[in-house]
Simulated assay, not measured.
Amino acid sequence: MKKKVILDRAAFFAALRKDNSGVFSRRLSKAQVQGIEALLDSADRHAVYDMDHVAHILAEVYHETGTYMLGIKETVMPSHTDKRPSDATVKARLEKAWKAGNLPWVTTPYWRDGGFGRGPIQLTHWSNYEKVGAALGLNLRQDPDLALDPKVGADIVVVGLSKGLFTGKKLSDYEFPRDLKAISKWHPRRMVNGVDGTDDEIARYHGSFYQALMAGGYKVVDDLIAATSITASKITADKLRFDDLAVGTVTSGVLKSADGRMSVDLGANQILIDAVTPKSKWGSLIKLVLKLLGVRYV
């Protein structure tokens, strides 16, 4: 059965703005709100419902973007006001750092042909752009700046962490909150990076976002409306026919009757239910179902 996330986002954001939240220092910029909402929407879209998983997604992006919460380009620091410098600027910064010996792990300058990092969790090297792009059905090699789009960037993070596309480790490999105190080898931070000394920070951020989700009343319930969806146009009973009546289209409207028929008037979308009078047993059943779908009868 399809699930539905219940979250009072106003209460959630209010919790993040508190003095003792542990994140954001009481203020949230428009970009930070946009990034957080994109991640929440993506988690819902990709059925990542576990509250610890959602909290960890937010924690990793909080760290990786320097609290910005939207996609950035490699070399961008928290102090930089320009979060998306030109490609030429990024390449020049990386080239300078490499020649100065500050990137000892780099053997081949991957940035020279444009395969530098982009995104809320940065993709580097074209092979990773291609792998993650394939998982999302996007050509990120052809258009790497898509990783900076709020929706696409959020999907990169959510799908990447849930499927282990960054390092091979995925959210379901860990038991939360226990593994937030694990030794480095077994810490959830390994989903994004090798041992980099940030395990304790990530654990704190995770806790902060988890508490904010709790303050917002986060819970996942069965979507009963979706379960009531009537989509079979071939269903027939005493000449009753539903013409593609689906929850996706019938969310509000007016149910009208005329000439022994009933119809849902949704402006351009009018769905006829043939051969049923409003007073028949089938008509009563339909009225009940449509009432559950938010359609009123007149």
Rank of each mutant, 00 (worst) to 15 (best):
K99M: 11
D87Q: 12
R118L: 02
A135E: 09
K99G: 13
P177G: 03
D173G: 08
S86I: 07
H125E: 13
T124E: 01
E95A: 13
L123V: 08
P120R: 02
F176Q: 11
F176D: 04
A97K: 14
F116D: 04
K99T: 09
D149S: 09
G114P: 01
H187S: 07
K99S: 09
P109D: 02
V132Y: 00
T89C: 06
K169S: 13
V90E: 09
R84W: 12
G164W: 02
P120E: 00
A154Q: 05
K91V: 13
L165R: 01
V159E: 07
V152W: 06
P188C: 02
S162Q: 13
V152N: 10
P144T: 05
G137R: 03
S86T: 15
K96F: 11
L148R: 08
G114T: 03
G168N: 07
D145M: 00
G160H: 05
P120K: 00
P109S: 12
L136T: 01
W126L: 09
D145N: 04
S184C: 12
L123T: 07
Y129M: 08
Q122A: 03
D179G: 10
L138W: 00
D179T: 14
P104N: 12
G160L: 02
D155C: 09
I121H: 04
D173L: 08
L148N: 02
D87N: 14
K170Y: 08
L138C: 02
K170G: 08
K91Q: 14
W186L: 09
G164T: 11
L146T: 01
G137N: 01
P188V: 05
V157D: 07
A100W: 10
A100L: 13
S127Q: 14
G160K: 06
G101M: 01
L136V: 04
V106A: 14
G168W: 06
S86Y: 11
R93I: 02
R178L: 08
T108C: 07
N102E: 15
N139D: 15
S127D: 15
K181G: 10
E175G: 13
L171D: 12
K163E: 11
G164M: 10
N128V: 14
T167I: 00
D87K: 03
G114M: 02
S86E: 13
Q142A: 15
L123K: 05
D143L: 09
T107W: 12
T108W: 05
A134K: 15
D145T: 11
V158H: 05
P177K: 01
Y129N: 08
W98M: 09
K96R: 15
N139W: 05
D149W: 11
K99H: 14
K163W: 00
P109T: 05
W186H: 04
I156M: 10
R178G: 08
G137W: 01
W111Q: 04
